[in-house]
């Protein structure tokens, strides 16, 4: 099959297949796949930075947590908030945070950048952990899921498992196609150019900083989308969702899947969440399941050492398509 046609149609087929999933009527698996899809958005948003702009952020959980807290704090305490304004407002807060911290962190490069993004995320962690603003270390419950009504009509009922699933799927697909579109545009090509050779981009007249900042803000907004949906799914937020473990986890997803490819990020989210599920399964691993992070840690180290291009890279090496490199920038 032609590689171009494959990459054009395959995502639609995959989305279609996923849409059928709730028909299996398994509460457990519907919830699990919902979580995977949310993580896929999260991973794609980080991939935009790491894989396409060359910015290794180790503080991406900041946006995930910030949007979750925004929902929890903005909505009325015991009634449902409206998604129509809480979602854009939450993403807006993430964009503002990204722009403000971006102005500072983008002054640094390399190791500095990694440390500084981590430190700013950690600053948010302490704000929510140490002050009463967000309920301290216990966090806040979101008693009622947001509503998505048009006038009196309930458009999507988020309390219903499968309706929420479809909404999340729609957001995941929309994020994928939006990012693919953006990355194939002049803007996206500029980002990849910056990743490959920032110095030359500057010499060619590109205001590199502005492009990086735009990418940083977009990644923050999409990371926020994932965090908002996760807060809706789990019904509570606590400082853990801002923690650096969360940032490390999503970075692992991106690399496990194969950075610089959008489908890789989705693949990585799947592989990671399922792996986590399997390793911590007490029925299979008994007492060892309690220490599943040991196996995960070893696995992460192995991926870093022996699978730098991730699962997507592994697939490519089987396919051995010579023009893969040339298409890297546009390929989803």
């Amino acid at each position: 099959m032609n590689h171009g046609a494959l990459s054009r149609w395959l995502p639609w087929v995959v989305v279609g297949l996923f849409a059928l999933f709730p028909l299996l009527e398994s509460t457990f698996y519907t919830q699990l796949v919902t979580k995977v899809l949310i993580m896929a958005i999260f991973a794609m948003s980080l991939d935009l930075l790491v894989g396409y702009t060359g910015l290794v952020s180790f503080g991406h959980a900041a946006y995930f947590g910030l949007a979750g807290y925004a929902l929890a704090l903005m909505g009325p305490k015991y009634e449902a908030a409206s998604l129509w304004w809480t979602l854009p407002a939450s993403l807006g807060i993430c964009v503002v945070f990204a722009l403000v911290t971006g102005l500072l962190v983008l002054r640094t490069r390399g190791i500095y950048f990694i440390m500084v993004t981590l430190a700013f995320a950690q600053m948010l962690f302490f704000i929510f952990h140490d002050t009463k603003l967000g309920g301290g270390s216990d966090g806040i419950y979101i008693y009622a899921k947001p509503t998505m009504n048009l006038g009196e009509t309930v458009l999507v009922n988020l309390e219903k498992l499968d309706q929420f699933y479809w909404l999340v799927l729609a957001f995941t697909a929309a994020s994928f196609f939006l990012l693919r579109r953006i990355l194939g545009s002049s803007f996206g090509r500029t980002l990849v150019g910056i990743k490959v050779n920032e110095h030359r981009m500057r010499a060619l007249g590109f205001p590199v900083f502005r492009y990086q900042l735009a990418s940083f803000a977009l990644a923050g907004a999409l990371g926020g989308l994932a965090g908002y949906l996760a807060a809706v799914q789990f019904g509570f937020v606590n400082p853990e969702i801002l923690s650096w473990h969360q940032s490390g986890m999503v970075l692992m997803m991106v690399i496990l899947g194969g950075m610089g490819t959008l489908h890789g990020a989705v693949l990585g989210a799947f592989a990671f969440v399922l792996l986590q599920e399997v390793l911590s399964n007490q029925a299979w691993f008994g007492v060892a399941a309690k220490h599943w992070q040991l196996a995960m840690g070893i696995l992460i180290m192995l991926v870093a050492l022996y699978l730098p291009q991730g699962l997507a890279g592994l697939m490519n090496s089987f396919r051995r398509k010579p023009q893969v490199e040339a298409e890297e920038g546009a390929d989803g």
């Binding site: 490390g248 040991l294 840690g297 696995l299 992460i300 180290m301 870093a304 050492l305």
Partner: peptide
């Protein structure tokens, strides 16, 4: 640096569990 971050992140998990 990306892989240094990832590997040492894995190492933290190993240390914590041990």
């Amino acid at each position: 640096h990306l892989y240094q971050v990832l590997l040492t992140y894995g190492l933290i998990l190993v240390f914590e569990e041990l």
